[in-house]
Design a protein around this nucleic acid. Structure first.
Length: 313
DNA sequence: TAGGCCATCTGGTCCT
DNA sequence: AGGACCAGATGGCCTA
């Protein structure tokens, strides 16, 4: 009940009788009630429009500045302001969640049906950046137990299992299952590129078997750190950037730039091939030549390169 | 049933 | 005054 008083403090200010508040034990219902307060109800609480708020004779007088009188108009302004603030807060949190979802998509493994929690997403992202940095600095391949250990550092066991499971697919048949989940990406050609990691401290996944078609795997499992598309994909969820695009890191370095500094997809071989889209699958696929075929959601491709043509097959 | 996770509401604070 | 951001509180849902 203290919650009710706290949560609706401004209403409490308006309500001279707390008995009305005690009638309600659900916050939402209270909210609904407050949102739906009629002028008549306000009138019974507050009296006439410009009337001074009635002092409760039984309560000791409080010190401090005298409260502004609560007129019906003022109450209504409070209510409207609060409702608008709530809506803004919801929108803000939705934006935050969208950003988090975009982050999930560029994580080493992405499952639409088995989402990482918020905190685990952030932890994995930190580890992923850290691990990739190590790969770049040490010149090591993004393979092996060490890399996975870096990825899983500090993660909960379920998440560690999930990540390990993603990297553990190897020859197992689950990886060759049908692609039921069109929103997730799993390319059977990756089977030959993944390594098998047996985590000594990681029991079998507690959430049951990890189904391949629920996983979104980075092609060639972390062998693509230097790949410009992967690097750029990592950026595709960032807020719109008006400035010139920085050419993606490339080991081949064969990128042509437009006058505005953005990569010229028509002239850059790698980029052109990257954005060959597999429209029938709803994904953009790319690079079918020297390296395994990669796929990214087509919406991500559009997001990453809104001003460029996305080639479809 | 306990615990984890999440969405939502809320009031406070800071900034414009 | 109003918006953005934040943290606390709470209830719902899900899983072990």
């Amino acid at each position: 009940m203290s919650e009710m008083v706290s949560v609706h403090g401004w209403m409490e200010e308006a309500l001279s009788s707390q008995d009305e508040m005690k009638e309600t034990n659900q916050r939402q219902s209270a909210y609904d009630m407050l949102s739906g307060l009629s002028h008549e109800e306000h009138g019974s609480i507050d009296g006439e429009d410009d009337e001074e708020e009635e002092d409760d004779g039984e309560k000791p007088k409080k010190r401090g500045p005298k409260k502004k009188k609560m007129t019906k108009a003022r109450i209504e302004r409070f209510r409207v302001r609060r409702v608008k603030a709530n809506a803004r807060e919801r929108t803000r949190m939705h934006g935050l969640n969208d950003a988090l979802e975009n982050l999930r998509r560029v994580m080493p493994c992405y499952s639409k049906t088995q989402k990482l929690s918020k905190i685990e997403t952030l932890r994995l992202a930190r580890n992923y950046i850290w691990a990739l940095s190590e790969v770049l600095e040490q010149g090591q391949t993004a393979e092996g137990k060490g890399f996975l250990e870096m990825l899983c550092k500090g993660l909960s066991q379920p998440t560690s299992n999930l990540v390990a499971g993603c990297l553990q697919l190897g020859p197992q048949p689950m990886f060759l299952e049908k692609h039921e989940d069109k929103s997730s990406i799993c390319d059977s050609s990756l089977a030959s590129h993944v390594y098998s990691y047996q985590s000594p401290g990681l029991p079998s996944p507690p959430y049951g078997n990890i189904e391949a078609h629920h996983l979104h795997l980075k092609p060639a499992t972390f062998k693509t750190v230097m790949d410009p598309m992967v690097n750029h994909t990592l950026n595709c969820s960032t807020p719109p950037y008006d400035g010139a695009l920085t050419p993606p890191l490339s080991i081949t370095g064969n990128f042509s730039l437009k006058q505005d500094g953005s990569p010229d997809l028509d002239k850059s071989y790698a980029f052109r091939s990257h954005y060959t889209s597999l429209a029938s699958h709803g994904h953009a696929s790319h690079f079918q030549t020297a390296v395994p075929r990669y796929e990214i959601p087509i919406e991500m491709a559009y997001e990453a390169y809104p001003h460029h043509t996305i080639f479809t097959e």
